[in-house]
Each structure stands twice: as C-alpha cells, then as structure tokens.
C-alpha cells in the first residue's frame, strides 16, 4: 500500500462517525409519500376540489387513470430510491413501466372511444396552459423532498435517477391536478397533462448531473470529515 492511501485510510478512520443505514427503497417511498400527500391534499383543498369529484369517483376510467398516475408516482419513487443504492438490481428502474403503460393505455383508449362516439370533434385540441404551472405547483414539494432524499444516496446514474424521481413528483402532481381541474377529455389530458409530466421528467433528467454528483458528495465528506 502506498503511503498516501495509508494516510487517507487513517484520516477516514479518525473521523468516522456512526451512520444510520438508509431504509429499504419502498420504506423511503412511504416516507416520501408522508411528506408529499399532505401537501398535495393541502393544495387541492386551497384551490378547492372540483365540484363533480364525488360523481367522478364512480367513473371507472377516471378511477383507473388516477390510480395509474398515483401508482406511477409511487413506483417511480421506489425505483429512484433503489437507483442510489450500490448493488441494487437495475431491473428496478423498470418498475414504473407497468402503471405508466396502464395510464397511457387508458388515455389512448379514451381517445379512440371519443373518436368513435364524436368523430373528429372528439379529438379537438384546445390550449390548456393552466396544466403546466398547476402540475409544477402540486409537484413542487414532492420534487424538493425527492431531491433531498436522493442526495443521501450514491449518484450512480444521476440522469436516470432524477428522471424517474421527476416522473414520481410530476405523476403525483398530475394526480393532484385532476382532483381540482375539470378537464377529462382524453386527448387534452394526454397532450397537456401527460405532456407536462414528460417535459418535467426531461428537465429533471437534464438537471441530474447538477443535483447528484460524486464531487459534491465527496466534497461534503471532505469538508465534514477531513478538515482537522
């Protein structure tokens, strides 16, 4: 062993402190939901829930889409937390694929049904600029909580991790949005709401390297640990 590495080991050992091992990814997801869900509920309450919410709860399409959006958020969060644990099976990254497919499939099927029933009028597209800021608002605290929690892990795949973390927050944001925003036309939801979710996911993926990188984590370690 060279002298430098030996010295580094001695330094690291001098300053080693007890650490609490990170809980399993699904437990961390539950902890994240404990922060995120009350905030989403608060926003829905402040903006005021849609007037037809009770009747909507008995519409199977609305229920399937809401459950799928929530499940996408939850599975994406679990996958994101698994992706910052070294040695975890990379197959976990595909966890949100199934609920996401159900979500998109249900909306796609809705578009087909609208076209069959109403013809080309059923697929008309109007601007709905409210969706973007609303999803950002509802997803803000879940996204911040996600970023803070992800930074406690190892930045093994920064872009993928923040992309699925962003998908989790935006999915939850869309779930909240549909509790107060009365827009249920499948094509409109697909383009404006799911479109916003994918834009936010892309932005999160781009920010991955800034949010999660070894330099900052080891930098913090050096600062806390190696300074005499």
């Amino acid at each position: 062993m060279t002298m430098d590495t030996e010295k580094l080991i001695a330094r690291l050992a001098e300053v080693v402190e007890p650490v609490r091992p990170l809980p399993r990814p699904w437990i961390r997801m539950a902890a994240w939901l404990l922060v995120a869900i009350p905030y989403v509920a608060l926003v829905v309450f402040v903006v005021s829930p849609r007037a037809d919410l009770i009747s909507k709860a008995s519409e199977w399409r609305y229920v399937i889409e809401q459950v799928a959006a929530l499940a996408t958020g939850m599975t994406a969060a679990t996958a994101a937390f698994a992706s910052v644990v070294p040695g975890y099976d990379r197959k976990f990254l595909f966890l949100p694929a199934l609920p996401l497919a159900v979500w998109l499939g249900s909306l796609g099927e809705g578009c087909v049904q609208d076209w069959i029933q109403l013809g080309p009028n059923g697929l008309s597209l109007q601007p709905d600029w409210f969706c973007f800021p609303a999803i950002v608002l509802v997803g803000a605290v879940p996204a911040i909580a996600m970023a803070v929690m992800l930074r406690r892990g190892a930045p093994l795949t920064p872009h993928i991790t923040t992309a699925i973390g962003g998908l989790a927050a935006a999915g939850l944001g869309n779930f909240g949005l549909r509790l107060f925003h009365s827009q249920d036309a499948s094509l409109m939801v697909l383009v404006w709401q799911v479109g916003t979710v994918f834009i936010l996911t892309t932005i999160a993926a781009w920010a991955g390297h800034y949010l999660l990188n070894w330099r900052s984590i080891i930098g913090i370690g050096r600062g806390n640990v190696l300074m005499p």
Binding site: T5, L8, I9, L22, V84, P86, R152, I218, G221
Partner: peptide
C-alpha cells in the same frame, strides 16, 4: 482511483444495507 473509491465508500457508507 483507489483513493476515489475509498472516499466514495466513506461518503455513501449509509447506503450499505446490512
């Protein structure tokens, strides 16, 4: 690189699942 790995291990030692 060895030192980088040791520093990385130290920084993320909480991610090790017992």
């Amino acid at each position: 690189i060895v030192q980088d790995v040791l520093l990385s291990l130290h920084a993320v030692r909480a991610t090790y699942d017992r």
